[in-house]
Design a protein around this nucleic acid. Sequence first.
DNA 1: ATTCTTTTGTATAATATCATGCAAAAGAAT
DNA 2: ATTCTTTTGCATGATATTATACAAAAGAAT
Lengths: 393, 393
Amino acid sequence: MERPQPVLSGELLTAVAETGPMSRASLLSASGLSRATVTQRLNAFIASGLLMEADEMRPSGGRPSRLVCLNAEAALVLAANIGESHIRLAATNLDLAVKAQVTIAFSIDEGPEGTLDRISAAFVDLLRSLSREAAEVAGIGLSLPTPVDFRRGRVVGPSVLHGWDEFDIAAYLGRSWSAPVWVENDVNLMALCEYRQSFRDTPDMFFIKAGTGIGSGIISGGQIFRGAQGAAGDIGHIQIAAKDEPPLCRCGKFGCIEARAAGWAIARDLAAFGRLASNARDIITLVEMGVPEAIMLLRNAGRTIGEVVADVVSILNPARIVVGGTLARGGEHLLSGVREMVYQRCLPLATRDLEIVQATTPSDSALLGAAMLVREQVFAPANIDAFIQRFAR
Amino acid sequence: MERPQPVLSGELLTAVAETGPMSRASLLSASGLSRATVTQRLNAFIASGLLMEADEMRPSGGRPSRLVCLNAEAALVLAANIGESHIRLAATNLDLAVKAQVTIAFSIDEGPEGTLDRISAAFVDLLRSLSREAAEVAGIGLSLPTPVDFRRGRVVGPSVLHGWDEFDIAAYLGRSWSAPVWVENDVNLMALCEYRQSFRDTPDMFFIKAGTGIGSGIISGGQIFRGAQGAAGDIGHIQIAAKDEPPLCRCGKFGCIEARAAGWAIARDLAAFGRLASNARDIITLVEMGVPEAIMLLRNAGRTIGEVVADVVSILNPARIVVGGTLARGGEHLLSGVREMVYQRCLPLATRDLEIVQATTPSDSALLGAAMLVREQVFAPANIDAFIQRFAR
DNA sequence: ATTCTTTTGTATAATATCATGCAAAAGAAT
DNA sequence: ATTCTTTTGCATGATATTATACAAAAGAAT
């Protein structure tokens, strides 16, 4: 066995991947290595095809620096987002630009083996359409609408996905793919996507998704906060007391915030007013049409969610609350309900610098988040050597 | 300027400090360095007085390994815990064994300058009593009963300590001491102490302190979780709705858990029964005497706290809840109230492997926690070089 | 056009680290 | 007492990295 060339030690690659295009001078000070070493290693990486010289130059008063950046086409990232009724898949380059994508049908009742086989097949099709090979895949990311134990690569606990509990997803996909596989909860990935795309300035951020269901993702120090089993942020079934009779939740308890503020709960309450809505999007349509009952219920839902967000603010002390999901698209109604309760309930210190904003909600942020997660993991110090060994030529 | 000897690169020192006594063989595999390098560096550290050979040997079937450990007497740690009426101070060695301690009086109204000057003077006295010098202090840790921005070394937000808001404690003490200074909230330090002393197996842990007030500390991945401004865990003023008229809290809001379950609130409710208690300890005394009203109120307080803990479990997904503070000493009454609400309200996944236990509450755990924090920081990779430069001889 | 400033590449000798191999140490197993 | 196993120390030549110095590059300022 030949030992890997030490010149391809991964620190510089990790630095460029995390920071973006960098000048040699900034790499020099960031790495703490000597100039000779940096030059030598960069040349080796450029020769190996993993890094390349960018066109950009950064004027600095003196000689402008030539930037070094990742060769985005050196490898591919595969990502899939399993939704309630369909699966969206994408292949991206290392800059996370989507090169090809496809959507396939999905049923909740499909077991893990069948689903994963179909995902694998769809990935193969994507690769074929790009004339690329499986060996060019840097990593695979899966987004699931259920709590996931990230470390073990499995679904944990009973959920909407029947038969997935404790199924070893990473190992199963590992049989067909040599690339590493990561699995994560969809709301966590939406949170990651929002953070990376729009809110880089607040590495301590709380993302709440209000749609058909209610969930949340916690970003702490720029990383997904997962808790002991990966169930952190699972706030849909926190119970809230109010003066009314607490409504029955689909989890079997009474008064959960889902049963008060989720899309299905608002639809239920709209029905009592004789208004028909079958999902969260319908509700937003009614709100946009100016139906007063819909507006009132949406704002009330914001207050309910705000009660829990107020607790979250006291517990986590985030710098920013980002409200996303379909229900957040109805203008300011949901948001102002949230704000109302948070500013009413929290101590001044926690709200002094707190921003409560709407998500930018790019379409399919969970899918993009899955690709981001893969990229982050592939270039993490713990995994960078494996990446180099596979892709340096 | 002379460059530091590269042989004294700190990785091995950090490894020994974090892991405890280690054999050369385990250091070899843990560091990834070659045997020759490990030998060379260890000899340098032993010669410099920072490491030493332990007496222990670890039988392994072959030649027993001689363990290398920190020279606990190579430096001192100074710690102070500012309480509501007095300040406790201690000097420990690097194994956190207390070498000398003292308690001085303190008043809430004393400003930061006067207080810190008196703390400095007390530290000087401690050093003199040990015949040690200020140059031998590896670091100073301060515990304060108020939210602290750890990164900036200051109190943030108005609190019981008047005039301390935004006062730069680290900088002020830095004028008299060359050792680095760290400041942290007392409940966070109690949480750290509990984790390190008794619950090493659960690096995702939630500590709740129920005494005169109510606060909490979050340990995530073995580290204190601080949030954006250091106010994470400040849960005393989370509001809870119930059927009764919500009681007025000392913060000015109604229905805070402090106003329902803290020592002062229980004392207030005991007074309504004609029972006199002026602090948390009095309440525990009444409970131990078997006074039924006191037991009932304590259990009720447990339920109130349990409602918030249930939310925390849903949000953070900890592996263990540790209940501490004076009110936790009243046997199982408080604890069972907490358990009752958590198991009633949380989803099975989050409680499946959740343990809810009593704190071991060593006396003055915040003071010990402050010393632990200093030790952790001094030997952290970011600071280890500074430590070596100061103490290697 | 000249000077200034910062970036970048390269050369050199000194130093640190590495893999490898060998031998000694010391308790455990026989 | 002998063998086994693991730990430890050290020597060696090869390789990598460093500090230092010098020179070239290239736009900005004058």
